[in-house]
Write a protein that binds this DNA or RNA. Structure first.
Length: 382
DNA sequence: AAACCGTGGAC
DNA sequence: TGTCCAAGGTT
């Protein structure tokens, strides 16, 4: 219902009138008092905790984050503690959570906050967004949740909620739609209400509504406090809005990996910048070209990269693992060294199996490490 | 703009 | 069992 605005051309027209925004927010706040979620990083007002939780929650579910958040805060309770940590320790605590650049950026941002911001968080969106790993959404989240700044947020939950409220039929990814949603978010969060709730609580209530009722499939409109304000509901389009682009197809890949044993140690390799799982450690691992023999690939690659000749045993186990648009089957072998020089490289290290726990491993690396330890218990004389 | 970056739970 | 999806950011 874009109506003719009688205001000056200097201020652009709003999606909703002030009256409509206030009525919606009043209903939202009332709903939130009873149904809003209570989460470990909320209601503390500590920007450090808000920041850690927001980074962990990027593209990651609340249930997956909670145990990581608790462990992380126990290890690094404050910003100075995180800044002083080794990056390897940060990655170890991130192991299994995915998107590992988040952990590297988190550590870098902690050090930048210490050296360039006197160890304190800025409250301005622009300053927050200048930190590595903090984009438009996360900056708005920290500013509003921790500092009660009237900063807009648009993420998966609010994106879906706003698209439905506005009845936006277009593809959500387009810049035009994104701009509309951000404008609408700013419109809502800057609306002055008679309730005492500030921007922080309003933003969290908006997200909770999106997360618990305005869900991707079968939204619970029957219990929603906003149906009176929802164009998608009015036109019965809750199930076709928001519209999303099709997902890319999955590709099958065969990888092969090997546990090379020598004097009770196993050879690990740290994955390099630009590779997948950069910074994590793994057993030597290679993609098998179509129609190639996995064992030949292992033998040649290890000889080329490490100068080691191997006696390779049969496949001992395998893991299936989905990653982005690939479905990987990982073939696992064990081997011993027949001839070859000691590896001279920072990327390679001989590690006792009891020290595996001190390394941040890839998920499949961890599974294989656990398998090796279990196998050692089964065959203690090997 | 579009591709890349991970993982596990829900259905 | 396969598909969808999550409190996004960077290049």
């Amino acid at each position: 219902m874009p109506r003719i605005s009688s205001r000056s051309a200097a201020s652009s027209a709003t999606e909703w009138s002030l009256q409509k925004r206030r009525a919606f927010l009043a209903a939202l706040i009332e709903w939130n008092a009873e149904h809003g979620r209570h989460l470990p990083w909320r209601a503390c007002g500590d920007p450090y905790r808000v920041w850690i939780s927001e980074i962990m929650l990027q593209q990651t579910t609340v249930t997956a984050v909670i145990p990581y958040f608790e462990r992380f805060l126990a290890a690094f309770p404050t910003l100075p503690a995180l800044a002083a940590a080794e990056e390897s320790q940060v990655l170890r605590l991130w192991e299994g959570l995915g998107y590992y650049s988040r952990a590297r950026n988190l550590h870098a941002a902690a050090q930048k906050l210490m050296t360039e911001h006197d160890g304190r968080f800025p409250r301005e969106v622009a300053a927050l967004q200048a930190l590595p790993g903090i984009g438009r959404y996360t900056a708005g989240a920290i500013a509003s949740f921790a500092f009660n700044e009237p900063a807009a947020i648009v993420e998966a939950n609010t994106q879906r909620l706003y698209a439905r409220l506005l009845g936006e039929p277009r593809d959500l990814k387009t810049t035009a739609v994104q701009q509309r949603l951000w404008n609408f978010a700013a419109e809502l969060v800057t609306t002055k209400t008679t309730e005492p709730q500030g921007p922080g609580e309003i933003n969290q209530a908006l997200m909770d509504l999106g997360a618990t009722l305005c869900t991707p499939t079968s939204p619970d409109c029957a219990h929603c406090p906003a149906t009176r304000y929802c164009l998608a509901y009015e036109t019965e389009q809750q199930n076709i809005i928001p519209r999303l682009p099709p997902r890319p197809q999955l590709t099958d890949v065969i990888d092969v990996t090997v546990a090379i044993e020598q004097q009770g140690c196993y050879l690990l390799r740290q994955r390099q910048p630009g590779e997948r799982w950069a910074g994590l450690w793994d057993f030597p691992r290679y993609t098998v070209p179509t129609d190639a023999d996995p064992i030949d690939v292992l033998r040649q690659q290890v000889h080329e990269q490490c100068g080691l000749d191997l006696m390779i045993g049969p496949q001992v186990t395998q893991f299936k693992h989905g990653v982005t648009r690939y479905r990987i089957t990982l073939l696992c072998h064990t081997a011993t060294v027949t001839t070859g020089t000691i590896v001279e490289s920072e990327a390679f290290r001989w590690v006792l199996s009891e020290d595996f726990e001190n390394y941040a491993l890839s998920v499949t690396g961890r599974k294989f490490a656990d398998w090796l330890i279990a196998a050692r218990e089964r065959f203690p004389f090997d």
